[in-house]
Design a protein around this nucleic acid. Structure first.
Lengths: 248, 248
DNA sequence: TGTCCAGCTTGATCTGCGTCAAGGCGATCT
DNA sequence: AGATCGCCTTGACGCAGATCAAGCTGGACA
């Protein structure tokens, strides 16, 4: 059964490697049949650009596997990441025909795309798709606002610690690691991408990672593999609201 | 006729001083009647807090007049504004019972509130309310992402110039000033609020405003009244993507 | 086995903005 | 008219993070 879950179904999709949300409707056959007809897959290699800001974008999509980023660039080349898309995340804006950001595959990437017009038609006739999309958009808005606090007010060290915590959390959620014990994950971003995420330079990122390592907040094996011996300590370094958690 | 326009109607509301969007449904009498029953008004004085982060929030609302801000605060007192609500803007999240941010009236403020539960019920039965809300949320997300670029990558001078441009634009939109000629407006924020908006200190805000004045980019009469002799010059200072405009 | 290169680290130095501190200005109250 | 208070400006100084520069490390390829 196909279940891309725009409504919180989590069945295994018959032709996708993972469960992903944000794509299909309640599992009612007619809807599914319609979705099947307008959906198609696209693959990208790490580093490839999915779409440039300003380009015509006649589809919406959800990430099946891999990671994509949204970035904005100023004329002089300064770049700021404004979105990170993990599996199940949604890109594209119904009711707009041009991309507002550069979308880039930072790892090998598979996306499940829907041609925009028929998707919009379906949204009109199937309210719960829109409802689910609203919910996801509100979540993204919350994430963006958390990110704004980070960019505007946190120190470099806090920024790095925050990023580690965010990645650890999302990684754990994806793998449904109910996880007690030391947290382990791989950084899916280069130092430069982290810098673009955090509003820093790659040198500062490197230095602060070294500092956190020196201070025992994280261990790293190789350049990408991170072990967090004590999540609470990390969250403290991140300057996050205590309680380690989710107000939501 | 009441028309708070969750669907782009712009009739004058019979009991509100201005046209505002984001509140009511297509002007079909039964819907209006229902909305009338669940709506009520609240007024706040400049400086009053509407709701604290974490508090129970059993309503959603739209701004009728005045300006409200959303801010996040770290334990040590560092603050970052994450949203600015002008008339017609919407606050509150269907499907969540606690506020995620401090909401504060920066000017005298009137809000049109709807008790949450009945509003949610209505959303379920009246899809276009949800559709309109999705549209507005996507707009806010775009604004948040623009804001992230500002926070992460712009210099203090660019930040100030950007803020002036944003306020000028929103002000013009509100007053439907189709406006050629020198742009004129009042700053609705104190220097400290601007600092919280921009991720700066109030001293830096003050210094950069003085600098822009010295360089003739803006003129100011008193401390709040701004005249922009050349909008293009201002946008250039803001480091915004040339074309002066809206990709949307 | 060497060499090449992208990604990363580390050092030295510079600078934009924060911090601390001292007033100025205008509105409101007495 | 003076006192008070919130808001704003300006100066002096210090530091976190940017910039510039050199070199490391590990994987791909010949």
């Amino acid at each position: 059964m196909v279940a891309h879950d725009l409504v919180f179904h989590h069945q295994q999709c018959h032709d996708c490697p993972i469960r992903h949300r944000a794509v299909c409707a309640r599992c009612e056959t007619d809807e599914l049949a319609r979705l099947e007809k307008i959906k198609y897959y696209r693959s990208f290699q790490a580093g490839q650009t999915v779409i440039w800001s300003g380009d015509k974008m006649d589809f919406v999509a959800s990430v099946v596997s891999g990671i994509a980023t949204l970035t904005q660039t100023m004329e002089d080349g300064r770049r700021q990441m404004v979105g990170m898309l993990l599996p199940s995340d949604f890109v594209g804006r119904p009711g707009r025909s041009n991309a507002a950001y550069d979308v880039t595959a930072t790892t090998d990437l598979v996306m499940c795309c829907f041609r925009k017009k028929p998707f919009e038609d379906m949204m009109l006739e199937t309210p719960h798709i829109g409802q689910r999309l609203l919910e996801m958009t509100l979540d993204e808005l919350d994430a963006a606002r958390e990110w704004m606090l980070l960019l505007g007010r946190k120190t470099a060290r806090e920024k790095i610690a925050s990023l580690m915590a965010i990645i650890a959390r999302r990684d754990a959620a994806l793998r449904a690691t109910d996880g007690q014990g030391p947290l382990v994950f791989d950084l899916p971003l280069t130092r430069e991408e982290m810098a673009d995420y955090l509003g820093l330079t790659l040198e500062t990122v490197s230095r602060q990672i070294s500092a956190l390592k020196r201070d025992g907040v994280i261990h790293l094996e190789g350049k990408r593999h991170i072990v967090v011996p004590d999540m609470d300590r990390l969250l403290e370094e991140a300057g996050d609201d205590s309680d380690g958690g989710f107000l939501v």
